[in-house]
């Protein structure tokens, strides 16, 4: 057991500041454990979101020593002895209180995405899909909606005005997953370009770097989507597509 110094942001939309707490950290603890200990012993009203404490729900996103992370998957032994550990709310979204931010932006973007439009079933009334055709999409489906990728995306983080016309990496892989879905019959090309604003992404891969699920957001999701956009502009590719019966296997 060691005593650590946690520098935790306390405040709300009206302002706030970092406050230092000295707290005991036991073997094996993660940052979230220490935050819980603070709540139980020194700061009952310290606001933070969490649910599963196992890296599965994506609730406890924060910026730990400036780096966007899940608090439940950040081991305390990652830090040097005596190092002050700062914990701040994710910066791209408006603060509610302490470590809790208003992530409504993401729920609005989610709702705007055209949902799966189901193809007709096969002759026997069932649907079949081959594993190799869904491997890529299953990777996207690992997303736990922690919104860390949204937090680090500079389009969202640094340009408030862009938020309106930009979906962000989380929703690019959502869109990619739908576009590549073997049972989907919808065409989201105009949506991806206009409402989702994929052109604003200049592939800096910050999203991929912070993804706690290690999803290849840029390489496997965003770039294929961008290629699709380019293809849809190219008259020859469009013509070829038509001849090939509008296959949408893209992956």
């Amino acid at each position: 057991m060691a005593t650590v110094t946690m520098r935790v942001f306390r405040g709300d939309a009206g302002g706030g500041s970092f406050k230092d707490y000295r707290v005991e950290a036991d073997e094996g603890m993660v940052v979230l454990d220490v935050i819980h200990r603070l709540q139980a012993t020194q700061a009952n009203d310290l606001a933070c979101r969490w649910n599963c404490k196992a890296g599965k729900c994506g609730s406890c996103s924060a910026e730990v020593n400036g780096k966007p992370r899940l608090m439940c998957m950040t081991r305390m032994n990652l830090f040097r002895e005596g190092e002050i550990i700062s914990v701040a709310p994710i910066r791209a979204f408006p603060i509610i209180r302490d470590l809790v931010t208003n992530v409504a932006y993401n729920y609005e973007k989610a709702k705007a995405i055209p949902p799966l439009r189901l193809k007709p079933p096969e002759a026997d009334g069932t649907y079949r899909m081959m594993q190799e055709d869904i491997d890529r999409i299953q990777e996207f489906h690992k997303c736990i909606e922690c919104f860390l990728c949204q937090d680090v995306c500079h389009v969202i983080r640094d340009h408030e005005a862009h938020k309106k016309a930009f979906a962000g990496p989380r929703f690019f892989i959502k869109l990619a997953g739908l576009e590549m879905h073997p049972l989907d019959a919808a065409d989201r090309t105009p949506f991806v370009r206009r409402e989702a604003g994929i052109g604003l992404c200049n592939i800096t891969k910050c999203c991929t770097e912070v993804c706690p699920e290690h999803i290849h957001i840029t390489d496997n999701g965003i770039i294929p989507l961008k290629e699709r956009m380019a293809d849809s502009f190219d008259p020859i590719v469009r013509l070829l597509r038509r001849f090939r019966g509008m296959r949408k296997d893209g992956a």
């Binding site: 709540q39 009952n44 310290l46 606001a47 509610i96 209180r97 302490d98 809790v100």
Partner: peptide, 14 residues
């Protein structure tokens, strides 16, 4: 008893 105010207060929720 709880500290603070009613805004996102985990102590109160607990």
């Amino acid at each position: 008893g709880v500290d603070g105010n009613r805004q996102y207060n985990p102590g109160w929720h607990t």
